Simulated assay, not measured.
Amino acid sequence: MAEKITYPHDRFDDVPRRPRGARRIGAHRVIAKPRYFWQWLTTVLVLTVLLTAGGIFYLTVLGNPANNLAAIAEQSEKDQAEKAAAAKKAEEDAEKAAAEKAAADKKAAEEAAQQQAAEQTINPNATVSVLNAAGVSGLAASVGNTIGANNFGVVQLVTNAPERSATSKVVYVDQADSEAAQALASELGTEAVFDAVNYAAYNSQLVVVLGADYSGPGAL
C-alpha cells in the first residue's frame, strides 16, 4: 500500500468544501510529474544520426573492397618510395664518404711529398747538364740560367738532346746524388730518375732532360 503523502497547512486547506453535486471552483493541489519526453526524443534522434553515419561510413569505406585495395596499394607505394629514398641516401652517403676519403688521401700524399721535398736539400755545387728534348728553341738556355741564378747547381753544359722526349726528368748517375736530384726535380716540377748508363757520358752529377711537357721555371 502506498504511503499517504502529507503537506504543511496552507491556503488550500482553507477552501470550503463544496456541497455534494456542486461544481468545484478554485485551485487545487496536484503533484507535478517530471517531463522526460523531450530528453528521450533528443537521445533517440542523436543515436539515430550516429548509427546512420556509422552505417554510411562502413558501407562506403570499410565495406568497399575497392577502397581497401586502393588503400593497400597506396601504402605499398609509399613504403617502396621510402625504401628507395633510404637506399638513395645510403648510396649518396657512401659516395660522399668515398670522395672525402679520396680527398683526404690526396691531401696526405701531397703533404708527404712536400715534407719529403722539404727534407731534401739542393746541392748548389752539383754539376748540371741541361738537355733540350722538347724542340723549343732556347729552352735549355733559359732553364740553365734559372738553375744558375737560383743556386740550384752549377750548369756546365746546355745542349740539345740526341732525341725528342715527351716527358721531363732529372737524371742522376750516382746514388750519392739521389737527394740533390730529388730536390732539383721538385724545384723544376718534374721527377728524379736514376740512370747510370745512358747519361754518364755527360760527366755531370745531374742531367736535366726537358721534354715537351716541361712547364716549370724557365719554361718558354
Rank of each mutant, 00 (worst) to 15 (best):
N67P: 00
Q205E: 01
T167P: 02
A32V: 13
P19Q: 13
A85D: 11
Y7H: 15
A2R: 14
D10Q: 08
A22C: 04
I72D: 12
E82P: 03
K106I: 09
D93C: 11
E110Y: 06
E163R: 00
L50S: 12
G148P: 01
F152Q: 07
A166I: 00
Q182C: 07
K101L: 14
W38R: 09
K107S: 09
Q114N: 09
V136F: 00
L157W: 01
N145D: 15
L45K: 11
A185N: 03
S204I: 01
N132Y: 06
G189R: 01
G54L: 14
D105G: 09
Y58C: 14
Y7D: 12
D105T: 12
F12K: 09
K101M: 13
E74H: 10
A200Y: 10
N145T: 12
T42V: 08
Q120H: 03
L184T: 06
A66E: 10
A126L: 07
L51M: 14
E119Y: 04
Q39R: 14
S178Q: 12
K78L: 08
Q115S: 15
A176P: 02
T60A: 13
A108G: 05
I56F: 07
A192V: 01
L62G: 15
Q39Y: 09
V128K: 00
I5P: 04
S165W: 01
N203C: 06
A85R: 11
E110R: 10
A183Q: 03
S204D: 00
I25Y: 10
T43E: 09
G189D: 01
K107G: 04
I5L: 10
I147R: 05
S76N: 09
A87H: 10
S215Q: 06
K169T: 05
A66R: 07
V158G: 04
A86T: 05
T167D: 03
Y36K: 07
Q120E: 03
E100I: 11
A99K: 14
Q115T: 12
N150C: 01
T6K: 15
A176I: 04
K96N: 11
T190M: 02
N150R: 03
A180I: 05
G54R: 11
S215V: 05
G54Y: 13
E100V: 11
G218V: 02
T60D: 15
A126V: 03
A104C: 08
S129R: 03
V158A: 05
Q116D: 09
I72N: 12
E91S: 11
P124G: 04
T52A: 15
N68D: 11
S76P: 05
K106F: 13
E191R: 01
K107W: 06
K106N: 12
A196C: 07
A141C: 06
N123L: 06
V136Y: 06
Q205D: 02
A183Y: 06
A85Q: 14
P16R: 10
Q75D: 08
S168G: 04
A200E: 08
D13N: 08
L50P: 05
V128Q: 01
L206A: 02
A126D: 04
E74T: 09
G138Q: 05
V143K: 00
Y58D: 15
M1P: 14
